[in-house]
């Protein structure tokens, strides 16, 4: 259990850093750290494959993309990368309200939260699920990715 807390507390701190940091670059770094720590959480939850994919895709892909975007806009704006926040109090109240409600549900839930065992051969079961049961959403997702790439290129193009 202590491993969980060892991961969870820095995770929350990094997340707060993402939303509070004045420096956009730092925010990105914190986000990367958050994502890596999340991958560790996945490992704790016996979702090893997902954890590695998380590092690969998120930390490798998304974080890089974000850095690109920041660089691009900074270069065009020529502005400092410091960023401000607005309505901190309102945001805090709203998000705390949501948090309270979520915890209220968690507290009042009648569910049994104890862990049940996964199938014997986890990776085989995962592969079967992914490529047999959910093969259609999987393929549709590939189309979505293609569409997103084309859309991003078209939108980001400078001239028509």
């Amino acid at each position: 259990m202590w491993i969980f807390w060892l991961i969870a507390i820095p995770l929350v701190l990094f997340a707060l850093g993402v939303v509070l940091s004045k420096n956009l670059f730092r925010s990105t770094i914190y986000l990367g750290a958050t994502l890596v720590l999340t991958a560790l959480i996945y490992l704790l939850l016996h979702a090893e494959l997902l954890g590695f994919i998380q590092i690969l895709l998120y930390t490798g892909g998304v974080a890089t993309l974000l850095v690109f975007a920041i660089m691009l806009t900074q270069r065009i704006v020529g502005e400092d990368i410091t960023q401000q926040s607005r309505g901190l109090v309102g945001g805090a109240i709203a998000s705390l309200a949501v948090l309270l409600i979520l915890f209220f549900f968690l507290g009042s839930s009648q569910l049994d939260f104890s862990v049940r065992p996964y199938p014997e051969n986890l990776n085989l079961a995962l592969g079967k699920n992914l490529f047999v049961t959910y093969v259609l959403p999987f393929e549709v997702l590939s189309v979505l990715l293609l569409a997103a790439i084309i859309g991003a290129i078209v939108m980001a193009r400078r001239d028509r």
């Binding site: 995770l11 997340a15 939303v19 948090l99």
Partner: peptide, 9 residues
């Protein structure tokens, strides 16, 4: 839940 709320914030 905590991470979600932070993100919402």
């Amino acid at each position: 839940f905590v991470l979600f709320s932070i993100g919402l914030f």
